[in-house]
């Protein structure tokens, strides 16, 4: 076992985990943060996407140890961060996905929303093409891409209002 010091959703946490565990396994099985989904487990689907220092990365291909020294954001962290910044209601990305019905089974949704969040943080006024590129590492096995694209565009509008 190895004692890890992680910064997850703004909280500094100490957790013991075997050295061969991925960040995904640490999040789900040590910290109970099951919003991060375990899909293909080999970097093909994007369901395990988390933000590492604001950039979308795959937690199934990152050792837990490698996450030390970086700010990790999981889907559970969006709402508290939004509220901490004085926002009301849900995070604009979560709210837009809700309003657009941008889910079917919902399995891809945390990864989709985090990829969208990372895009909007860098580019608050993306085009449809920008969104398609930014979300191209996240698969929706229900193929509900139309509403997901609409939600990301709506989130861009709402994010701009917030800014």
């Amino acid at each position: 076992m190895r004692l890890l010091e992680l910064e997850i959703n703004g909280d500094r946490l100490h957790v013991a985990a075997p050295p061969h565990w991925t960040l995904l396994e640490v999040l789900r099985y040590e910290l109970g943060l099951t919003g991060t989904k375990q899909g293909c487990d080999k970097g093909d689907c994007g369901a395990c996407t988390v933000l590492v220092d604001g950039k979308p990365q795959l937690s199934c291909l990152m050792l837990g140890s490698a996450a030390q020294g970086h700010a990790i954001t999981t889907i559970e962290g969006l709402l508290p961060a939004h509220r901490a910044q004085g926002g009301a209601g849900a995070d604009p990305v979560q709210d837009a996905f809700d309003r657009c019905g941008a889910l079917q089974c919902g399995f891809c949704q945390p990864g989709m929303m985090l990829s969208a969040k990372a895009l909007l943080s860098e580019n608050p006024t993306p085009t449809s093409t920008d969104i398609k590129h930014a979300l191209s590492g996240n698969l929706c096995r229900c193929t509900g891409y139309t509403q997901i694209l609409e939600a990301a565009l709506l989130a861009a509008t709402k994010t701009e209002e917030v800014l």
Partner: peptide
Amino acid sequence: AGPQHRQM
């Protein structure tokens, strides 16, 4: 690959 792979 995809955007996440290129970050990593």
